[in-house]
Every structure is written in C-alpha cells, then in structure tokens.
Design a protein around this nucleic acid. Structure first.
Lengths: 100, 100
DNA sequence: CCAATTGTTTGACATTCATCTAACGGTGTC
DNA sequence: GACACCGTTAGATGAATGTCAAACAATTGG
C-alpha cells in the first residue's frame, strides 16, 4: 500500500501556495476541484493536453504545497482540494483565486 | 519625461497575478505596500538583501502584472499597489494574500 | 556645462522548472 | 502466476527566471 503524505498546513507558507498556483495547468486543476469534492485523477488529466507524466508532476507539486490530497482506491486515485483546511489556514484565498 | 505604463486590469489574468506573487521578494514587496499608499522605491529595496538592479526587475514584473504603479517625482519614484482597482478586478485576493 | 544621484537596462550566469519518452511499480482480473 | 491497467519515477532537454556587475539614461544642483 503506497502512501502519499500531505504536509501539515501550519507548515505551509503563503509563498509556497502562490508558487504552486502560479502555473496555468495547476491553477486550472485547483479551480476544477475547488469545491473540495474528490475526482478521479484520470478525469482530471484528460482535460488537459499534457501527458499523464506531466500531470502526475503537477499533482505532486500541488500536494507538496498542501493544496490537494489523494484518496487511493485500489488501482485508481481520487484527487481533492483540501478546501476546509485551506480556508482555515488562508482565509478567503481559495475563494478569491477561484473567483467564486 | 519617462513613462511607465500599466496594463488595464481587465486584460490581466489571475494566472499572471499569481505568477508575479509566486516569488518571495515580490510577495514581500506587495505585502509591504498592500495598503495602497505610495512609498519611495529606495525605501523598499533597502529592506531587502538584493541589489538595486534585481529590485528594479521585480518592480517591473509587478507592474507588468498590474499589481503596482509608479509615481514619478523628479529623480525619485514612489511605488504603490493598485489596491482599489485590484479589489474590484480580483475581489478578496489582495486581502487574502496579505493575510489582512 | 559638469558632477552627483536615482533608477533602468544589458549581458552573463546558474538555477529552476515544465515537458516528454521510457521504464518501473502496485493492483485487480483472468 | 501472467497480463492488463493506473499512476509514478527517472532521465533528458529546452525554456524561463532570479541574480549580479557594469554600463546607461534621466534629473537635479552647483
């Protein structure tokens, strides 16, 4: 069973979050998942014109910046924005970025 | 008389803004000026351990992303966050980023 | 006009980063 | 156990970027 640890948001800086969001693909991913509901990774990466590998790289970057987490189900993974935690750590940020 | 044109915020994307803010120095600059009040450029760059040239580069980047504008007074320039315009174009963003 | 001051630009350099292909690693299924 | 499937990792590559030193430009003042 593979593990995909996420950082404690207390250790995540605004700078790291903004850096992660400063890429068009990653911003689009976060916007797509902004409601906090999990979605199959395959569904996400198929929306873009990049390869699976590139998308996996972006997923990892977003996870490292505390923005998303994975739910593993057998072979497939769901990805999900840590909306509630983010709203507590960085109030208003996700909403502003998504343009809610 | 040198001109320093700023983009119309209607033409500025969230992506461009986040990219500009994704650098630690630029984020610090915006936070320092977030209230929208002008400050001498010299006062700003002296707060950092970078050279004048590097700071001028960051100023230009922030200006190009629509985040700041300059007020020229003879030899010296004031720099200022376009707070009101930004708040209208990207509601809540500056406040969230600054951690108001 | 000349010199000092303030800020920008240029060119170089090292680093970071997004991207791809190819190979690898778990997981479920037959 | 063998194979197909889903996703990650490794390595390579080219582009973008932050940084600095040095040269340049505009302005003020003597």
């Amino acid at each position: 069973m593979v593990e995909y640890p996420v950082p404690d948001l207390a250790d995540v800086t605004m700078e790291a979050v903004l850096k992660a969001l400063g890429d068009p693909t990653r911003l689009a991913i976060v916007r797509m998942l902004a409601d906090g509901r999990p979605r199959p990774k395959a569904d996400v990466w198929q929306q873009f014109s990049t390869t699976k590998a590139t998308c996996a790289h972006h997923f990892k970057t977003l996870r490292g910046a505390g923005l998303v987490t994975y739910d593993v189900h057998g072979r497939t993974h769901d990805i999900r924005v840590r909306r509630a935690e983010l709203d507590e750590r960085f109030p208003g940020l996700v909403a502003a970025v998504v343009g809610s």
